[in-house]
Design a protein around this nucleic acid. Structure first.
Length: 217
DNA sequence: CTCCCGATAT
DNA sequence: ATATCAGGAG
């Protein structure tokens, strides 16, 4: 039942976390960045785009654009061209510019560290805010991306399809000290084993905790 | 719920 | 040739 956080789920969440920590001891944010500002931009670009693709784009993007002012200074078409391959490039260019203006006008050119302030920024939703707050500023946060949504559902740890509800349920099941790493562990698992199209259950270290296991014929 | 869009797997 | 991947805003 949604809303019913039983001990069984919490215990299983804990075992899943432990097993994935063992399997992916180096799990971390898959986006490359040096500063909170770079992480913010990279995460905006990662909407509906793989982290691997974002890293290709940002490897050169961050040499050209170093500050919020740098992004505002160029014509829309130029920024669109620079982020083109991440998809939704017109939207993202607009978001990035509006976001950079907000950073300057409301936060003295810095990236705010609080989840709520981050959520107010153009192009920044709960997932992006959680990534930045959790990874750049060390605030316990659960970033619910497509992997977390899919896999927590497969595991039967959550019932909802709504990312905000999923986030709340995970926060009740997982130790706050593990919130940030939990997202990374699940995302890593989703990228390498528990594929959306065809989960490799036979190679899954948490299949024993998964009600959705399917073995190939 | 619809729109925004390229990259890659099938 | 087409389905699927990967979030946010209106």
């Amino acid at each position: 039942m949604s809303g019913t956080i039983n001990k069984e789920s919490a215990a299983r969440a804990s075992k899943v976390t432990a097993a994935l920590k063992r399997e992916y001891p180096d799990a971390r944010c898959a986006l490359n960045y040096e500063t909170p500002f770079q992480l913010l931009i990279a995460t905006i670009l990662s909407a509906q785009c793989t982290d691997a693709r974002v890293n290709i784009v940002t490897s050169t993007l961050f040499n050209k654009y170093r500050t919020p002012s740098d992004f505002i200074a160029v014509p829309d078409e130029e920024l669109e061209k620079d982020i083109f391959s991440t998809g939704f490039y017109k939207q993202k260019a607009k978001s990035i510019k509006a976001c950079c203006i907000a950073l300057i006008e409301k936060h003295g050119g810095d990236v705010p560290s609080g989840f709520d302030d981050l959520c107010e920024l153009p192009g920044v939703g709960r997932k992006t805010a959680s990534v930045v707050a959790g990874n750049a500023f060390g605030f316990p946060s659960v970033a619910v991306d497509t992997h977390v949504k899919r896999i927590t559902n497969l595991l039967g740890l959550v019932e909802s399809q709504d990312p905000e509800k999923i986030e709340a349920e995970i926060k009740l099941l997982v130790d706050p000290n593990d919130w940030v790493i939990f997202s990374h562990l699940i995302a890593t698992h989703g990228r390498t084993v528990c594929f959306a199209r065809k989960p490799a259950c036979s190679q899954c270290v948490i299949s024993g905790y998964c009600p959705s296991v399917k073995y190939e014929k």
